[in-house]
Lab assay of single mutants.
Amino acid sequence: HTCEKCSTSIANQAVRIQEGRYRHPGCYTCADCGLNLKMRGHFWVGDELYCEKHAR
Rank of each mutant, 00 (worst) to 15 (best):
C27E: 09
H42L: 14
I17G: 06
I10Q: 06
H24K: 07
C3W: 00
T2D: 05
E19R: 09
R56W: 05
C6L: 02
A14I: 10
F43H: 15
K38G: 13
T29S: 09
Y22L: 05
E19A: 08
G41S: 04
S9Y: 00
G46F: 02
L37Q: 02
R40D: 12
H42F: 04
Q18M: 06
Q13N: 15
V15C: 05
L35I: 12
K53G: 08
P25T: 09
C30A: 00
Y28M: 09
H54C: 14
H1A: 06
E48Y: 07
G26T: 14
Q18D: 11
C27I: 00
W44Q: 13
R23H: 05
I10N: 09
G46N: 13
C30Y: 00
Y50H: 10
D47Q: 10
C3N: 02
G20F: 13
Q18F: 05
C33N: 01
A11D: 15
C3A: 00
G41W: 01
C27D: 02
L35E: 13
P25R: 04
Q13I: 01
R21H: 11
L49T: 07
N36V: 09
E52C: 06
A55K: 05
K5T: 13
K38A: 14
A11F: 00
A31F: 12
G34R: 10
K38F: 03
T29N: 08
C27N: 01
G41P: 11
E52N: 14
E4M: 13
R40Y: 08
G26W: 13
T29R: 06
I17P: 05
G34P: 04
K38W: 03
N12H: 15
F43T: 11
R23V: 10
F43P: 10
S9W: 00
K53Y: 15
G41C: 04
L35N: 13
Y28P: 01
C33A: 00
S7G: 12
S7R: 07
G20M: 08
N36W: 04
H42D: 13
A14H: 06
G20E: 07
N36I: 09
E4R: 02
E52T: 03
K38Y: 11
L35W: 10
A14Y: 07
V45Y: 13
G34D: 11
Q18H: 03
M39V: 12
G41L: 03
N36M: 10
R16V: 14
D47W: 09
N12E: 15
C27S: 02
Y22M: 02
F43A: 07
G20A: 06
S7F: 08
A31P: 06
H54K: 01
L37F: 06
V45F: 15
T8V: 14
R16K: 15
E48I: 08
H24M: 03
E19N: 03
C6R: 06
N12C: 09
I17Q: 02
Y22A: 06
K38T: 09
A11N: 15
R40C: 15
I10M: 04
L37Y: 04
L35S: 12
L35G: 12
T2Y: 05
T29I: 11
R16S: 13
D47V: 07
A31E: 13
S7A: 13
C6D: 08
T29M: 05
R21T: 14
R23T: 09
Y50G: 03
V15R: 02
R21K: 11
Q13D: 15
A31Y: 07
F43C: 13
R21I: 11
V15K: 12
S9P: 04
L37E: 04
R16G: 11
R23E: 05
C6G: 04
M39R: 12
A14V: 07
C51M: 00
Q18P: 03
R16L: 14
Q13L: 04
T2H: 14
C27A: 04
T2L: 00
F43I: 10
D47A: 12
L49C: 09
D47N: 09
R56G: 13
A11R: 07
R56C: 13
N12P: 02
T29H: 11
I17R: 02
E19L: 07
Y28Q: 06
E48D: 10
K53C: 04
S9A: 14
S9C: 04
C6S: 05
H42R: 07
N12A: 09
V15W: 00
D32F: 12
E4C: 12
E52H: 04
Q18I: 15
G41Y: 04
H54N: 03
Y28W: 13
H42G: 05
A11Y: 02
G34Q: 11
R23C: 06
C51H: 01
N36Y: 07
S9T: 06
T8Y: 14
H54Y: 06
W44R: 11
V45L: 10
F43W: 13
E4F: 13
E4Y: 13
L35M: 13
S7P: 02
A55T: 11
L37W: 01
